[in-house]
Each structure stands twice: as structure tokens, then as C-alpha cells.
Write a protein that binds this DNA or RNA. Sequence first.
DNA 1: TTGCAAAGCAGACATTTGTCTGCTAAATTG
DNA 2: CAATTTAGCAGACAAATGTCTGCTTTGCAA
Lengths: 203, 203
Amino acid sequence: MSRTPRGETRSRILEFMRRRIAAGEPPTVREVQQAFGFRAVESARAHLRALVQAGQLVHLPGRARGYRLPEPVGALSWVPLLGRVQAGALSDAIEAPEGYVPVRAQDAGKAHFALRVVGWSMVGAGILPGDLVIVRRQPTAHSGEIVVALVGDEATVKTLRLRGGQVVLEAQNPDFPPIFPDPESLRILGKVVEVRRYLEEGS
Amino acid sequence: MSRTPRGETRSRILEFMRRRIAAGEPPTVREVQQAFGFRAVESARAHLRALVQAGQLVHLPGRARGYRLPEPVGALSWVPLLGRVQAGALSDAIEAPEGYVPVRAQDAGKAHFALRVVGWSMVGAGILPGDLVIVRRQPTAHSGEIVVALVGDEATVKTLRLRGGQVVLEAQNPDFPPIFPDPESLRILGKVVEVRRYLEEGS
DNA sequence: TTGCAAAGCAGACATTTGTCTGCTAAATTG
DNA sequence: CAATTTAGCAGACAAATGTCTGCTTTGCAA
């Protein structure tokens, strides 16, 4: 039986595993076997075992489709892209997201969502209309951080500033005056942890 | 036995499935059962079946961990984050990436990579130093598109412009004069399809 | 209240899939 | 070349996991 030179098949298998796992579909040992034309399941498994040995894969013994990628390549998640967010309707909006955006797993979980920016008020911070902001939900924030806050009935993106005990929402654009919200009615939805701009159609 | 109101459990299960599948680890029916405290496997399976019925999940019958997300939520991939790119060394740089960045699958494949932006030359386009640009490799581009081009020995991000048959690389910052590169030595590495800014530490 | 449909339960069963043992053949090494 | 390691093969076995049937409970509305 002819045979591929040392190590070459192995890295091709790693590539195969990376693709499949990243696509959310870890393969079975037998799928690896077939994909590479082995005639025995064990041949595939030996390669997988070697890749685990080399630290390039992680194995959960006994579990079906139990091979994973070691961090940081492996972990990622999706965050719901909400349209406009009305006061109090945040949880409703999460029920019917406009779409989903991939993020690193550390930014995942229920605590995050994404919004599309409307208007030019934050150009000074490099945030343009149409950009997506990824927001970690939290009820407070530090001075200087960019937050999503409810002002009136609509969510807006602004820089939070504390001026002598007084909360100010600053735009990053001289054309937009700062907002001095009533502390009672101010509600911080979360902190902007990422800004994203797609330059081609499709979100 | 107390029970959650109609439909609520279902959307929580969908959320659970989304997270697990996106993380590269589709759960088993029994894992869903346990996660939601059902006492019978069938209870979980009934929910999953209903979600498939509603088109919110896709099922591969008989396969272990056989639930998938329908496009476009499901498909995603990773793109290598290159540091600085020297002339001609692009393929070398890809061999040793600084890290990986998650993107939607449509932006995946070998044809893409990410770069970190240095300098203020593109502020006018909302691209700040430290931002990541996701680049689709292509040897040409249209006028007005933002490209990564090799000028001298270093890669730079600029707007490509055609002025009467003459190629110009324009910065988006009045402090930076346009570049009129020698057509012989100009090399376009690709087109910027996305801009990304992380506002917290960790890339 | 009564009836119906949705939700849940219990357990058996079938299939998929991981794992093991022993073997053969090709590469590598001294 | 002989010894050793690596790659691959074959088949059996066991565990994980999907699927099925029949039944009970709950929510809802006529």
C-alpha cells in the first residue's frame, strides 16, 4: 500500500478538523477515516491521538464527535443584532433579533448584544452611522467609557462622563451638545466593547 | 409538576442550541434534557423537533449531535491576524499569525486575513490606529475602495483612486499627502471589507 | 366543567460512534 | 541488514446517543 510521507497526512487532518469544528460540526472518527480513505477506523484514530498528544487538538474521551480545538481558535459565539431598542423593550427585542454577529467566546453569553448606530454624533470616536456596536449589558459604567443609554424612549450611544457628581452624556461631535439627563430617568443599558463596520453589502 | 408558560422554554432552548452549536459543540438530546431539568429524553426531543418544524434548527436524523443552525447564523470561520506585513512576506506571515479573528463564513477561506492599523492616515474614514481591518486578498480594486497596498517595504491602508488613468493612494486625513506610486512597483494585497475596534484589553 | 391539545414522562430499543486487541507492512535507524 | 518505530488494517466490543411507543399531567378555551 502506498503511503504519504511522514507528517503530511497529519497536518492535512488537522486542517480538516479545524474546518469542521469551526463550522460547528466536529466529525466522527469514521468521518475522518472516510475523508482520507483509510480502510480502518483505527488509522484515523491514531492520527487524532497523535494530534492530541501534540497539543493541537483536545479530546473528550468517550463522547461522540469529541474532538475540539484548543483555545483561542476554538471558542466563539454569536451575539444577537437588535434593531432599534425602545425603552424597556430590550428583552422583547432580544426575542426577535435582526441577525447574529460572531464574536470571541469571551464576549459571549446573554450579557451581550449588538446595535446598529444611527447618526453622526460619535464620529469623533471613529463611530460612523451604520456601524455595529457590540455591547456588554451592565447597569453602570466608568467616566470616559462609551455606553448605550436610554434617553427618553430611544437608545443612544454616547460617552459617559462624570462632572462633579453630575452625569453627562457627551457626543463626540461638536455639533451635538452634551446631554444632562435626569438621574432618575437615566438608564444605562451597557458598555460598548467593540465597534464594527462592514464595507460590503450583507449587514 | 410546575411548568413554564407556553413557548418560553422553547426559545430558551433555541438560545441554548445556538450557543452550543456556535461554540463548535452541538449538544446531545440528553444534554438538552439535563440543561433544562426534564425527566425524560423525549421532552427535550419534542422541543427540538418543534424548533426544526419552525425552521429555526436543522436536523440530521440519526446522527449523534445532529442539530445545526440554519444559515446564515451557523456559518462562520476564523481569519488569521497578521502583524506587520513586509513586502513579499505575506505567505510567511500567514504561517505564523498573531492570532485569529472570527468572521462570518462568507468572509472565510484562505483569501482573507486581518491586519492591525498603524497611524492616523485614515481617521477620515473612521479607521483609527489599533483598529483591525479584515482584508480579502485580490490583486486589483475599484476606485474609491479602501485597500491594503505594498508601498516600499511595508503594507499600508489607503483609499484607491483613479485620476485620469493614474493610480493614487489617498489617505483620509489632510495631514497626509496622496501617494502616486510607480505603477510597476505598486502591489495591491487586497480590499478592506471590514473594520473592527476592540475597546477592552485582549486584542 | 369538559374536552382537547400541548407538554411532559418512562422505559425499551436501534443506531451511531468511540475504543480495544492483535496483526501486517512500510519507513527509519544504527 | 536487523531492530525498532510508525502507519495502517481488521474485526469485535462497549458506550453514547438517537428514536420509538404508550401513558400521564397541565394549560386553555368552549
